[in-house]
Write a protein that binds this DNA or RNA. Structure first.
Length: 763
DNA sequence: GTAGGGTTAG
């Protein structure tokens, strides 16, 4: 079939007029051919139905049908219609079908049954079916009906495509968009404004914003709706500057903006944090006489809140005659974002009505405020309130699980999603990979990665990072080279993952190579974090001088992470002189950095320089600097337990400490010697032993040994780096108690099994 | 006798 399609050749190759194979090879066409069948015989009951309709009983039924509100009522009416024979009237049948397809309460399964019973469905009925599936967000089902319709010899009209395309998700738009566009052209419908706007929307959904723009440009008449469609298309592709430019163009073309125009433009200002422009638009809106208007006011509140002007957002909110759930959510999210999380919570509790978006905004607020347990707690309350979480919600709670290292809760979330039919879309998939990686369950992370159909740079970055910190550096680098074979490009964060893989594995040469190919091959200029990785890589591998040289030659000012990396390596390599230099720079940049003091004193202590240790301690006291207390989390039965060193606040404390004592004996029997070289205090040997005995991770592990069945992996999350003694002790525990233990510390994972650690003592 | 554009969250 050759199609007379006037279209630019280089832009849309699959259906330009030169490609006449298109319709014969496509999936849709194959389906259409497969389904093609002779049309059903014409109905023979039209006369009868005319006769039936006139009975008084049927008149009554028809008027009840007109007022019908629920499916239950509809089904009753339907059965009566069958009894009286009214069902044979095509008009009344159609009314039943329309109800199912267009009403909120309508059911598409029932619609399909009705439709299949229709002797002669016409184009209106086919459109109704398509519209019904579309409204319920079943694009695939809508397309199938469309295909069936073509196979039965019907020709779509200018209603068909807007209905069909309305529900298109990104996947559907990518897969079928071009082909359906070709159909619209073939049927001569593409110049219809409704069809064209539907196509513009569809292309901006599939990411082909330039194609959308081309449709827009090629239109002879552009009304406000078309401008709006194009502006929101740019919003959808996150090209906010283009949205604003287009709005300017609309003004120049003297097309009067509608409320929707302003809502879209304000959204563009909000998301690009363009407060000044937003405020100007605010002025224009005031003059337009469109206010008060709930939706515009909501957009204004959102714009001010996102741009950080909470005073103005709050003023607007308070001045509103009516507020809806969107207005409330915008201020709650605004306060949460600006750091006033408790105020946000207070408002949240006052909300007259909360939907899943409001709950999600609150959950995300807690996550951003690093209050992860509260994020999980409010998710629980959300379920009590019987509000159904969606994909967005799950991303938030999974992030909380990731930070807490709460694998059990994370697993529960995944089951929950399965049971509640929450899809693993690309965002949820990425969040799951991150959660599993940060909980040390890299196998599960890989499972998710492998089942994802679509992967973006965040997907690849998450899995590369996950493998890198879990001691599977080679696989991380393998996946990175696989990533380079796809169309997804790495960004600066991906390279942090790649470089940390090299650091953890001590792959100095490879790391150097990646560092330079990042610049030469991908045009990514290294930032201070990349230099931090490079310094870490060199220093940890013992090339301290070279690391220092790198710092001195950096094109930007080194930050505390960079000096911290050098200082940390000095601890491993016991280089006091270099440590002093690094600490000096570090404290100059960040005088409050308690980790620097602690590291320096650790190094002095290791080298037996007790006078120096005392000096550092004195300095800390003089300056009022306190060591961040070590803190370890362990999850048991879905509850996260928290321990700090020497902690006795846990209800099971007595049992934990006696377990700890027993552990000490067992470990010593197996050859473990406490390594007190890093103890911060200059005290007697016995006290030092106690000091390391009571480190938070040992408490958490003792608790894990008591409360978790044998065979269950003990997983602990620690806020600081593990000390040498704990690392050594846990290796012994894994052998003596035959337990797999996973500890996530500040920088990486340690998987202990059979007396060995996945980090090969290189951390 | 049906329809097109929009806002709050990752």
């Amino acid at each position: 079939m050759r199609l007379p399609i006037p279209w630019k050749k280089n832009r849309l190759p699959p259906f330009t007029c030169t490609n006449h194979l298109y319709f014969t090879t496509s999936n849709l066409t194959r389906l259409i051919t497969m389904l093609s069948s002779p049309p059903p015989p014409p109905s023979s009951n039209s006369l009868a139905s005319t006769h039936l309709q006139s009975s008084p009983q049927n008149h009554q039924l028809i008027s009840i049908l007109e007022q019908c509100r629920t499916m239950k009522e509809l089904k009753q009416i339907h059965s009566q219609m069958i009894r009286t024979g009214l069902i044979r009237s095509p008009v009344e049948r159609r009314r039943l079908l329309s109800f199912c397809c267009t009403q909120q309460s309508g059911e598409m399964d029932y619609a399909r049954l009705l439709f299949d019973e229709m002797p002669n469905p016409d184009l209106f009925d086919w459109n109704s079916m398509i519209r019904g599936y579309s409204n319920r967000h079943f694009p695939e089902a809508a397309v199938l009906v469309y295909v069936e319709m073509l196979a039965r010899g019907f020709v779509p009209d200018d209603y068909t495509f807007p209905f069909l395309l309305k529900a298109f998700t990104r996947d559907a738009a990518v897969e079928l968009g071009d082909e359906l566009h070709a159909h619209a052209l073939k049927f001569g419908l593409s110049s219809n404004a409704h069809v064209r706007n539907a196509l513009i929307r569809m292309y901006s959904t599939s990411g082909e914003i330039d194609t959308a723009r081309e449709l827009f440009e090629r239109s002879s008449k552009r009304d406000a709706v078309m401008w709006n469609a194009m502006i929101s298309g740019y919003n959808r592709s996150k090209q906010f500057v283009e949205s604003l430019k287009l709005f300017e163009g609309m003004m120049k073309a003297s097309v009067p903006p509608t409320p929707v125009t302003y809502i879209s433009v304000l959204s563009a200002c909000a998301r690009s944090k363009h407060l000044e422009y937003g405020a100007r638009i605010h002025g224009v809106i005031k003059e337009s006489g469109m206010l008060p208007n709930l939706k515009i006011e909501n957009a204004l509140i959102d714009m001010y809140a996102e741009c950080g002007d909470m005073d103005e957002a709050w003023r607007l909110f308070e001045g509103m005659k009516v507020q809806d759930v969107i207005s409330w959510t915008a201020v709650v999210a605004g306060f949460a974002d600006s750091g006033e999380i408790d105020r946000a919570r207070m408002l949240f509790d006052q909300m007259p009505e909360r939907d899943s978006i409001s709950w999600t905004a609150m959950i995300d607020g807690y996550v951003r405020a690093s209050r992860f347990k509260e994020a999980l707690e409010i998710f629980r309350v959300m379920q009590v309130a019987n509000v159904r979480p969606d994909e967005f919600t799950m991303v938030g709670v999974l992030a909380a699980c990731a930070q807490l290292g709460a694998l059990g809760v994370g697993e529960w979330m995944r089951l929950y999603m399965e049971r509640n039919k929450i899809r693993i879309d690309i965002f949820v998939g990425n969040a799951l990979i991150d959660m599993y990686s940060k909980c040390g369950s890299v196998e599960r992370a890989l499972e998710i990665f492998n089942m994802m159909h679509r992967r973006d740079k965040y997907t690849w970055t998450a899995i590369i990072m996950g493998l890198a910190v879990n001691g599977r550096e080679e696989e991380a680098l393998d996946l990175f080279s696989k990533m380079l074979g796809t169309s997804v490009r790495p960004d600066e964060i991906t390279y942090i993952g790649v470089l940390s893989a090299c650091t953890h594995a001590g792959l100095v040469d490879e790391g150097r190579e990646f560092f330079s190919s990042m610049i030469t091959e991908h045009g990514i200029m290294p930032n201070v974090a990349h230099y931090g990785c490079l310094v870490d890589l060199l220093a940890r591998a013992g090339q301290l001088e070279e690391a220092l040289e790198t710092i001195n030659n950096m094109p930007m000012k080194p930050n505390s992470t960079v000096w911290g990396a050098l200082l940390g390596a000095c601890r491993i390599h016991r280089d006091v002189e270099m440590a002093e230099l690094a600490a000096e720079h570090l404290l100059e940049l960040d005088p409050e950095n308690n980790a620097a003091y602690v590291l320096l004193s650790n190094i002095y202590a290791k080298c037996g320089k007790w006078d120096e240790v005392r000096k550092v301690r004195q300095m800390m006291m003089d300056r009022g600097i306190k060591k961040t207390p070590g803190c370890s989390l362990i999850e048991v039965n879905g509850e996260v337990h928290e321990f700090v060193a020497g902690d006795r606040s846990h209800p099971g404390s007595d049992r934990i400490y006696s377990k700890l004592e027993e552990m000490g004996k067992e470990l010593k029997f197996a050859g473990y010697v406490p390594d007190t070289s890093e103890v911060f205090l200059d005290v007697g040997e016995e006290e030092k032993e106690n000091a390391v005995y009571w480190h938070s991770e040992k408490l958490a592990i003792a608790f894990g040994l008591i409360s978790l069945q044998s065979g269950v992996i003990i997983r602990v999350v620690k806020n600081l780096r593990m000390c040498f003694d704990c690392h050594n002790a846990v290796q012994f525990v894994s052998a003596v108690y035959d337990r797999e233990i996973v500890v996530r510390d500040r920088t990486r994972f340690h998987h202990f099994r059979g007396g060995l650690c996945s980090c090969n003592d290189y951390w």
